[in-house]
Simulated assay, not measured.
Amino acid sequence: MDNELSGNMNMNQASSISSLNENENTGFIGINVPLLSNANETFRQIKEKRFSMLKPWSDFFDKNRISKPKDISDITKKISHNLVYFQANYLVIVLILLVYIMITNLFLLFSCILIGAGFYYISKRPADQPLDLFGYKADQKSLYIILGILSIILLYMSSGGSALFWIVGVSSSIILIHASLLEPSIESEFANTV
Rank of each mutant, 00 (worst) to 15 (best):
Y90E: 02
S73T: 13
S58N: 11
L83M: 02
K70L: 04
I93Q: 00
I101C: 12
R65H: 12
L97F: 14
N89C: 03
I113V: 10
I103W: 13
I103D: 10
I72R: 11
L54T: 15
D74V: 02
F60L: 04
F86I: 03
N89P: 00
K77H: 07
T76S: 14
I93N: 05
I113W: 09
L97A: 03
Q87E: 10
M102I: 09
D62S: 05
F107R: 14
L83E: 01
F110S: 12
L108F: 13
L97S: 05
D74N: 09
V92I: 15
S80W: 08
V92L: 15
L95P: 05
L109P: 01
F86C: 02
C112E: 10
F60Y: 12
V84C: 03
N89Y: 07
K68D: 09
D59F: 07
L108K: 10
L109Y: 13
I66Q: 14
S58M: 08
I101N: 11
D71R: 10
P56S: 10
K77D: 06
Y100V: 06
I113K: 08
S80V: 06
I96R: 08
I93F: 00
F110Y: 13
M53C: 06
D71M: 00
L98P: 06
L97D: 01
V92W: 06
Q87G: 12
V94S: 11
F107K: 14
N105I: 07
H81E: 01
A88K: 06
A88Q: 05
K77F: 07
K55W: 09
P56A: 08
I66N: 04
L114D: 10
V99C: 11
L106S: 15
P69L: 05
I79L: 02
L114T: 15
D62G: 06
K77M: 06
L95I: 10
S111Y: 03
P56C: 01
D71V: 01
D59M: 04
C112G: 13
N105Y: 12
L54D: 05
V99D: 10
S67C: 15
T104P: 01
I103R: 15
V92C: 13
L98M: 13
Q87I: 01
L95E: 12
K55D: 04
S111Q: 07
W57H: 09
F86P: 01
D74R: 04
F86T: 00
F107Y: 15
F60S: 03
Y100F: 14
L83Y: 11
L95Y: 09
D74I: 00
P69I: 02
Y100P: 00
I66C: 03
Y90D: 04
R65L: 15
L106C: 07
L54I: 12
L106V: 15
L109M: 14
M102D: 11
I115P: 00
S111W: 03
L114G: 11
D62V: 01
F110P: 08
T104L: 08
K68I: 14
Y90A: 05
W57Y: 13
Y90T: 01
S67L: 05
D59I: 02
N64I: 06
N105R: 15
D62A: 06
S80E: 02
F60I: 01
K70V: 11
L54R: 06
D71A: 02
L83P: 04
I72S: 02
N105A: 03
L108V: 03
F110L: 12
